[in-house]
Amino acid sequence: MPDKRDVTLAVNGKTYAVSVEPRRSLADVLRDDCGLTGTHLGCEHGVCGACTVLVNEKPVRACLMFGVQAEGKTVRTVEGLADGDTLHPLQQAFWENHGLQCGFCTPGFLMLAAGALQENPDMTDDDIKDVLSSNLCRCTGYQNIVKAVRLAAREMRARARI
């Protein structure tokens, strides 16, 4: 079998020492080697965004990056979004506004929005829609996802002001 390489990943503030083939995608390493199955694979092609995670706090498609490339970088996945039992404002807003049906695309949308709002907390409604158009959802028709992110953005801005 092809050779494996030892890599140390920093995911959600924890250190994972794993030994992986260089060709394994970051998504597969997170799912199979770190046991973090919240990151989903919808296409492995870079189109659907279900696999979106934050690498150095920027949204990245984990199916388009090798696990070994994440060495020395910080990775944040959906499992690292809530604060213990307290949901992140995005998660809360998705819940309140029925922003998910089957929930398969949800981790990708949450991480995409979390990264984008971190970069620019003052996104306009149109900006938000532009950002969200890079991920696919087959269930919701997007209406409630867009609404949830807009409301969460408002909530996060309000909290930041306090």
């Binding site: 919240g38 998705f94 819940w95 949800t106």
Partner: peptide, 22 residues
């Protein structure tokens, strides 16, 4: 009413087919 099934799905704790391992 908001859904009772949402919490694990929001936390990345779903159990989709690919998430099952043995």
């Amino acid at each position: 009413l908001r859904r009772i099934e949402d919490r694990p799905l929001l936390m990345g704790q779903g159990a989709f087919a690919a998430d099952c391992n043995w």
